[in-house]
């Protein structure tokens, strides 16, 4: 089923931070939403999540900061059980252990509150919650920003594996085109609260049309920068 949203927009203090935006997402599609700081990536991600959920679609959202996803007064056990209940799943310690092992958080004490874990572990816990069901769409906002490279690479590989062959579509929000390019089939470039460009990954990397996409593409690698 294609997910479509039309006319999403947002403003803050009278300033438009997201101009009316429409978007179609195919079943199982993997999309990278890229752009500079302040270009409106997370705003579009949040608006998309709200709109689809309001229309009854199941969307898992991993926000940029685990603080937005976790209640500081509740144990991690509570969060996990609440997610299972919300998804109508029976408690399944084996499934939980499997996901936790893959994300290397199986050593964490679930009786603790979120702040009893490191930030990187909290972020992976939120990703683990998102992987529990089989939503129509998984929105990941800078999922690896608090992770070390080794853990980040493993987490991205796990996501690839988890999504492969399934019906869940993925929207990967990141400022790093180099990261997104390896993981998605389609890239959407945001600039100044608008979609500047929307194209298959290779097309956008090889022949970016807009200044925003050209800048991102030219700066995607550390070792082959233009002079």
């Amino acid at each position: 089923m294609t997910l479509s949203v039309t006319g999403l927009s947002a403003s803050r203090s009278g300033r438009t931070i997201l101009h009316p935006t429409s978007l179609n997402i195919e079943t199982g599609e993997r999309i990278g939403l890229v752009g500079a700081s302040g270009s409106g990536k997370s705003t579009l991600g949040n608006a998309l999540v709200d709109d689809l959920r309001a229309r009854g679609q199941s969307v898992a959202h991993v926000p940029q900061s685990p603080d937005e996803a976790l209640d500081p007064l509740r144990s991690l056990n509570f969060h996990w059980a609440e997610t299972e209940r919300a998804l109508g799943l029976a408690a399944d310690p084996v499934r939980r252990q499997g996901i936790f092992k893959a994300l290397r958080i199986d050593g964490g004490d679930l009786r603790k509150r979120p702040w009893g874990w490191s930030r990187g572990m909290q972020q992976r816990f939120v990703i683990a919650m998102a992987l529990m069901g089989a939503p129509d769409l998984l929105v990941l906002d800078e999922p690896t920003s608090a992770l070390d490279p080794v853990v980040a690479a493993r987490t991205m590989d796990l996501l690839d594996e988890h999504l492969s062959g399934g019906r869940t579509a993925m929207l990967l929000i990141t400022h790093d085109l180099g990261l997104a390019a390896r993981r998605v089939d389609r890239l959407i470039v945001m600039d100044d609260g608008k979609i500047a460009e929307d194209a298959p990954t290779q097309t956008l990397l090889n022949a970016p049309q807009t200044p925003a996409a050209r800048s991102l593409s030219a700066h995607r690698n550390w070792l082959s920068l233009p002079c």
Binding site: P149, A153, A181, R182, R220, W222, L223, S224
Partner: peptide, 16 residues
């Protein structure tokens, strides 16, 4: 090697 391979897989070393 683990560190380098992770950086490659995250696209940080493309062009090397």
């Amino acid at each position: 090697r683990t560190l380098r391979d992770a950086a490659f897989s995250l696209g940080a070393l493309e062009g090397a």
